[in-house]
Design a protein around this nucleic acid. Structure first.
Length: 240
DNA sequence: CGCCTTTGACCAGCGC
DNA sequence: GCGCTGGTCAAAGGCG
């Protein structure tokens, strides 16, 4: 963070004001406190929207998983199987596909996408790096392979492919468990800790983590740095 | 310059 | 053993 600290020298002597160094007057202080309040309101609104979005996604996922279970049961009945067949080696060939790719440790998530949106992006609060793409036999749309890049040692992988039935439905299959928290979780913790507000030190810790992650991403954003420079410059010039 | 995507090559597992 | 398929690797190029 050291290299990003803003070393603005406010003691620069303005040529049309000879007697003083810049000081925060009442107007600026009032403006600042208003901005802080607005910022807090906006953050609360975002948190509410995120919560609503998450609950809707959960409902949709549950419905889709129920649909999956029903569909697989119907397929089993087609082959004259029962649930106990899973452990029987004698019928392995009848449903070899489900045995070849067991669902243990894998989580499926469904996302509806805009019909015009042809991208394969499933936003889930983590950072992913694509490492491969394949066209599979049973689905004409390509399957994309991602590794979690949020933490270097995170073993989680995901596959994203469009549904055969509905090309607007993205199916993401997750393998493994994250050994870190997502940005959404950190945001949620900030929210809950602000609600309870029992321990200011905890709030500070969550804020520190969140701010650090935000700073890391913003530091790599030249547009942000440019905007920040313009904002600071205009604010400084405003005073003289 | 670092990070990410693309894409062809390669490898392992499985069925025949 | 051979071919098919899914999954991964890694070099090359793009982008901000």
């Amino acid at each position: 963070m050291d290299e990003t600290s803003f070393g603005i020298d406010l003691n620069v002597t303005p040529f049309h004001k000879s007697d003083c160094t810049p000081q925060i007057n009442d107007d600026t202080a009032g403006e600042l406190s208003q901005m802080i309040l607005k910022n807090k309101k906006l953050r609360d609104m975002i948190i509410v929207v995120l919560e609503n979005n998450n609950s809707l996604q959960n409902i949709a996922n549950n419905l889709m998983q129920e649909h999956d279970v029903l569909a697989s049961n119907q397929n089993k009945r087609k082959f004259g199987e029962c649930d106990d067949c899973k452990t029987s080696g004698s019928v392995k060939s009848l449903h070899s596909d489900s045995l070849k790719r067991p669902n243990s440790g894998a989580t499926r998530v469904y996302r509806w996408t805009d019909p015009s949106d042809k991208s394969m992006i499933v936003k889930d609060g983590y950072q992913w790096r694509k490492y491969g793409q394949k066209v599979t036999r049973d689905n004409p749309s390509p399957r994309a392979y991602y590794k979690c890049s949020f933490a270097p040692s995170c073993p989680v992988k995901k596959k994203v492919q469009r549904s055969v039935d509905d090309e607007h439905l993205l199916v993401a299959t997750y393998h493994g468990e994250h050994n870190h928290e997502s940005a959404e979780n950190i945001e949620h913790k900030i929210q809950t800790s602000h609600k309870t507000f029992n321990s200011p030190t905890e709030v500070g810790e969550f804020d520190a983590i969140f701010v650090e992650q935000m700073a890391n991403s913003l530091r790599r954003n030249p547009a942000f740095i440019e905007d920040l420079a313009v904002a600071i410059t205009s604010k400084v010039l405003e005073k003289y």
